Simulated assay, not measured.
Amino acid sequence: MSIMNKQDLTSEELQLLSSEMAKKQKSTGTTWILWFFTTSLGGHRFYLGKTGTAVAMLLTLGGLGIWSFIDLFLLNSMIRDTNEKIENEILSEIRLMKNAKKNSAAN
């Protein structure tokens, strides 16, 4: 996540972001363990919220292993992308709360 997107946040809002990220972010270790033990069943993709491709992996047994092998090289970027998406969602919620407070204070 770019620092530019966080620079207008107060220390309380940054603390809220950090707290929510600690609760919601996806663990690299957990993802790799799921890949290792459920690779052909798409368990790691279910965990990362990629339900559509996870179901496809489940039905094709990981593309007969090919897709599972490819994920070996893509997994770290998938984890990073998922965590960035989660952080962006939290930032959006924080900004909505901030704007709601401004609007209620203005009225």
Rank of each mutant, 00 (worst) to 15 (best):
N5V: 13
N5H: 12
N5A: 08
K6T: 13
K6H: 12
Q7K: 04
D8A: 12
L9C: 00
S11M: 10
E12G: 12
E13H: 11
Q15T: 14
L16Y: 07
L16C: 10
L17A: 06
S18Q: 12
S18W: 05
S19V: 04
M21E: 10
A22S: 15
K26I: 01
S27L: 00
S27V: 00
G29C: 07
G29S: 09
T30L: 07
T30D: 01
T30V: 04
T31K: 15
I33F: 01
I33G: 06
I33L: 02
L34F: 03
F36W: 02
F37H: 03
F37W: 08
F37K: 06
F37S: 06
F37V: 05
T38V: 05
T38R: 04
T39N: 14
H44K: 08
H44I: 06
R45M: 04
R45H: 09
Y47N: 03
Y47S: 00
K50N: 13
K50W: 14
T51H: 14
G52H: 15
A54V: 08
A54H: 09
V55M: 00
V55D: 02
A56T: 12
L59Q: 05
L59D: 04
L61I: 14
L61M: 14
G63Q: 08
L64V: 12
L64F: 13
G65W: 02
G65R: 10
G65D: 00
G65E: 04
I66V: 10
I66G: 02
